[in-house]
Design a protein around this nucleic acid. Structure first.
Lengths: 348, 348
DNA sequence: TTGTACGCGTTATCAC
DNA sequence: GTGATAACGCGTACAA
């Protein structure tokens, strides 16, 4: 087993100094062609590669970015990672992942673990618990230490940093407008509690679309699902709630749901109640994932372009890392990613 | 903006030496209680944390493990990551992600990028291209430099390292046995080309189940999908192939597919041809992901316990990293994760 | 009880 | 053209 070779070892082997080796390998003009050749050949033979850690220590930059997300087994987040990794790699950075698992304390611990020199900056999306507790000290501390942060999707205005968000409001509005266009008269909304910023914005979009079309919003048509329950486990409960919504409002002919699962479940319930999708009820979901695509009937959704979000976030972060702007008069940008309505079989 | 504080700065502030500070912070008995208190208080005030990079350089270990996977937007792989991250974090390690995107060269580049000191060991699953080209030099080189590697799922016997694999053979066998038990007489297999090891093993399991039950395997019932085509994009083509299979074999009353998508598409085709699932045709897939769970009818699948695989892989790797075994007489383990048949609506 | 010196691997600066 | 030295931040063996 041959351990990784270092400059020092090469120097000793060839009986020259470490600095000569270093210079020779960087093709410095200071070194004679003879020695350069000799050293370079030897280095190649032993497959010399500079040690990243030593470089990081010296340069005070790791060329690594940290991504903290609530959950990785999730189409949206994994797409974001893919996008971020793509851009990061292209620009010579590695990506290190931390999972908060929707927990505040794990988010804090993860960030502290990475902030101590392991990375140059963060891309992150807040955990639900953090959103609920509204405790943002760890973000602000990190930034006050000069570590740039780019937040995506789940953001709050209290934190001053670069942000990449989905145009939740207009995405929802367009979706509901589509339903109205398609002659839906009684459109239900299946959403999350308001502390989830995206749930709130999508609800507003829904209301605005109704409003602009002079349709009276009815609170009984709005179902807010308590998402602290893990509905991946308690699917039945979710189904029951939605079934009640349908039964209490027989006229429902359109449903806008703030995520795939709710939309899919709505379709399932509709079918169970003998309603045809899209003939009797049209359904639109948010988040364009595998479920929507492969459902039967396939689901019309608001696509968030998650990968693009990840790309943009990585760009913003790396741009900041490589810019020479005085942190004092630094500017923060919020990039809004437009949504697309992907029409499939669940609408006419 | 307060930059991260270092030992040196604390030493200067308090007019003591760096080593005194270092010792005081590690609560060394060498230092007087007075100085310790003073230093610890100061450090706490300025929120001192040792620099990971410096520690890594000094200790020659980064407490970071690298995970290289072909694709992250994939339920199976993201579950593996979740499991690995869970164990890694619990044991004080970070996780750095590299995506090969099924490309040989990206796999090589990613590994080289990380192998130069950034991480202590690898967890990885080979790209399809690597499997096809059968070029494993980068794995062997990495290991010969003393960097431990744990491979999962897509493995080859030529590489000597720890491995975590699914019991593909028995998983498939059990699934097909289930179909036989359920009175299926003509069971089709939808698989991948044989160079994908898991496809091969699952095919063997299928054949063995038939064989043990004295059912003659018919090659016309075996469909091998060319998976170099991206069927997420060319769904129609996949559908067409499967439709042909059904049309050419009207007696098919059972389908075993080596992944979710194939199984789902088989159900779709069956429905299109007026067949009822599970009454006319029973379907079982491999890989227990969201699609199976939320399909209608929901899909009976062979669960691979992906998260458990990730956990096990991380355990193996970290155990090796922390063991003092002489690399010369090192032993390699292959952990086989048993599968479970998750019965849902697509079988009786 | 405290401080000095060294080394981890690298590069930049300066001296020879 | 080559080499010695310092520095990045830390921990520790050893000296005072």
């Amino acid at each position: 087993m041959k351990r990784k070779i270092t400059l020092k070892q090469i120097a000793r082997e060839l009986d020259v100094s470490i600095s000569t080796v270093s210079k020779a390998l960087r093709n410095s003009a200071e070194i004679s062609d003879d020695t350069k050749q000799k050293i370079q050949a030897f280095a190649k033979l032993y497959n010399y590669r500079p040690n990243n850690i030593a470089l990081s220590l010296k340069n005070r930059r790791t060329n690594t970015i940290g991504i903290i997300i609530p959950e990785i087994v999730h189409h949206f987040f994994s797409e974001v990672i893919r996008g971020a990794e793509l851009v990061a790699n292209k620009r010579g950075y590695n990506v290190i992942i931390g999972l908060s698992n929707e927990s505040f304390s794990k988010e804090v611990i993860n960030m502290e673990m990475l902030a101590n020199g392991s990375i140059d900056g963060f891309i992150l999306s807040m955990s639900k618990e953090t959103l609920q507790q509204q405790d943002y000290h760890h973000f602000n501390e990190t930034m006050s230490q000069g570590m740039p942060v780019v937040m995506f999707d789940r953001v709050v205005s209290e934190i001053k940093c670069d942000k990449v968000i989905v145009d939740d409001f207009n995405g929802a509005k367009n979706a509901v407008e589509k339903l109205i266009e398609n002659k839906c008269k009684s459109i239900a909304l299946i959403s999350t509690p308001d502390y989830v910023s995206v749930g709130k914005l999508r609800t507003q979009g829904y209301l605005e679309a109704l409003n602009e079309n002079n349709i009276l919003a009815e609170s009984k048509l709005i179902l807010k699902i308590d998402d602290t329950v893990d509905y991946e486990v308690h699917l039945d409960a979710l189904e029951a709630e939605i079934e009640q919504l349908f039964k209490a409002n027989k006229k429902i002919d359109g449903v806008f749901a703030v995520n795939e699962l709710y939309a899919l479940t709505a379709m399932k319930v509709a079918r169970k109640l003998g309603l045809n999708v899209p003939n009797d009820v049209q359904v639109i979901g948010f988040t364009d994932g595998v479920l929507s695509k492969h459902a039967t009937p396939s689901l019309t959704t608001v696509s968030q372009h998650a990968q693009q979000m990840g790309e943009k976030a990585a760009q913003l972060l790396i741009d900041k890392l490589e810019s020479e702007v005085n942190p004092a008069d630094e500017e923060f940008h919020t990039v809004v990613i437009a949504t697309d309505l992907v029409e499939r079989e669940s609408t006419k």
